[in-house]
Every structure is written in C-alpha cells, then in structure tokens.
Simulated scan of single mutants.
Amino acid sequence: MNGSMTDQPDILCIGSVLWDVIGRTPRRMDVGYDVPGRITRLPGGVALNIAMTLRRFGLRPALLSAVGQDAEGEELIQACTRMGLATDHIYRSADLPTDRYMAIEGGNGLVAALADAHSLEAAGDKVLAPLMDGPLGTSALPYDGAIALDGNLTEGLLGEIARSPAFARADLRVAPASPGKAERLIPLLTHSRATIYLNREEAGLICLTKFETAVKAAKALIARGAHRVLVTDGGESAVLADAEGLLERTPPKVLVTRVTGAGDTFMAAHIAAELAGTARDAALDQALQAAAQYVAGESPA
C-alpha cells in the first residue's frame, strides 16, 4: 500500500489506473495513415480519469486498482498522490507490470485504441479486498458510500460485485470502459443501486441491436430491467432514465480537440453534481457542460 489520506474518502473509484499514451493530430486519419502529430503520456485509465475529475470538483476519491511495483508503477502512484488521490488501497503486485492504454486520435475522432489492462484482470479479487475484508467494508458491515466502477474488471468479478453483500448498500456508478467491454456490465444491469453510464453504441451491444437515438437505447435498457441508466451520444442528446422517467438534454456545440477521457469526465461531473445534492436536470446539464469543455480542450487533460 502507498499514499495516505487523513480523512475518509468521499467516493471509491474501482478499475483501471494506468498510463495513457495518446497520439493526436488535427489531420483526418484512416487505416495506414502516417502523419505528423503529438504523442503524450499521462496518468489515465477509466477509474483514474473519473477520480481526477472528481478531485477537480472538490471531492476526495480513493483508488482501488492494481499497479505494478515497477518503475512505471512507482511514477504513477507518485503522480496520483500529487493530485490528492488516495492510493492506500491499491493492490501493488511484484509480478505484474503496470497497465497501459494507447490511442490514436485524428481530426475525425478516435482512429484506434488498445487497452492493456491485463494486470488488473490478473489481480482479480485482490483489488476488492479492502471492501470485502476491511478496512473499507465487509460483507457483514458493507460500505454504504458512492463507488465508481469500470468495466476493465473481468465479467466474473463484476458478477461477484453484483451478488456480493459487501456492495449491497453502495451507490454504484458503473461505466463499461469501452464498447468492447460493454457486455461485461450485464450482471450489474439490474442491480437495485446501480446507475449505468454508457453511450449509444455500448447500449446496442448490451441489447444486441442498433439504436438510432439515445432515447430508444435508454428505454430498451429500462425494459431489460435496468434500475437507472444514462446514455450519451456524442454531440447528440444525452438521456437519463430511471423511476422518475426520461430526461433528455442536448450538449453544447463545441470544436472537438480530443476524445479520450470525455466519457469519464461526463460521468464524474454527473456524480459530483448528484453527491452535492444538485437537482436531476441541473446535474445532467453540469455533466454535459464539463464534457464539452473537456473535448474543446478548455479543462485539464
């Protein structure tokens, strides 16, 4: 365990904590293109992206993940600590390397990406030990705060979370991490305390169909037994569906300068607003505004 925090965290962020290697160019790209651009390496991963945004909203997040004891892992833990994120509960493996994510973004959006989260998957339930066997909670005394959870965990582990009494009282906020991992969320879809954040494509993969709008996607997920869902669709409408009905909002129009991390920013901003007691419609507006500022390059990467 590394890092420290004197106060109890406001929210736990469970999932990928890794290095993002992002290549960006303003030029349009297709398969086989070779163009000038900029390559950056930044702390990333869905759980970490969410935690960083929550921190900017004044919350105190704690990370639960797997990070290697290699040089990249030490550097990553130090970066997280400098940002004010609690790393005490991260599983540090001597045998597993620190995970990485690599993406290419062109003027036409995300061209391709690879997520190497094999160490997180290999760590398995060791990542959840602080919630299952203390110090954050146990099955007998479950954690009752907010948890942001990403789909980089294995389907088996997500299924265990869906069934475990240790998570029965938590305010679960769940994201698939990528379209390729959307189906991993199926065990959590009907969890009575889960809010599922996903885009229109990911909703289609879960429902084995293709939706024309976020509204249709949200309705289909509720029909499948989802407790609460928030479906985004890029620059088109975002829809919140729950027991109170459907709430639809259109994001601000901005010039897109980056894509990776936008969904995580949206989710974190929405969580922060709701934890602050913001009204349902205003919370969705705040999330859309934060995501728009992010993709326009007006907020920190």
Results as ranks from 00 to 15, higher is better:
Asn2Lys: 14
Gln8His: 12
Asp10Lys: 12
Leu18Trp: 11
Leu18Phe: 10
Val21Met: 14
Asp34Val: 14
Asp34Met: 01
Pro36Cys: 03
Gly37His: 11
Pro43Ile: 11
Arg56Asp: 05
Gly58Thr: 03
Leu59Ile: 00
Pro61Asn: 09
Leu63Phe: 00
Asp70Ala: 10
Gly73Gln: 07
Leu76Cys: 07
Cys80Trp: 06
Arg82Asn: 13
Gly84Leu: 10
Tyr91Thr: 13
Ser93Glu: 06
Ala94Ile: 02
Asp99Trp: 03
Tyr101Val: 07
Gly109Val: 07
Ala122Pro: 01
Ala122Glu: 15
Ala123Val: 08
Val127Tyr: 01
Leu128Ser: 11
Ala129Asp: 11
Pro130Arg: 04
Pro142Thr: 00
Gly156Ser: 15
Lys181Leu: 02
Glu183Trp: 07
Leu185Phe: 06
Ile186Thr: 09
Tyr197Val: 02
Asn199Met: 05
Arg200Tyr: 09
Glu202Pro: 03
Ala220Met: 08
Leu221Trp: 06
Val229Arg: 02
Thr232Ser: 14
Asp233Lys: 03
Gly235Asn: 11
Gly235Val: 03
Ala243Val: 14
Gly245Val: 11
Glu248His: 02
Glu248Ala: 14
Val259Lys: 10
Val259His: 04
Thr265Tyr: 00
Ile271Trp: 10
Leu275Asn: 04
Ala279Gln: 09
Ala282Met: 14
Asp285Val: 14
Ala290Ser: 11
Ala292Lys: 10
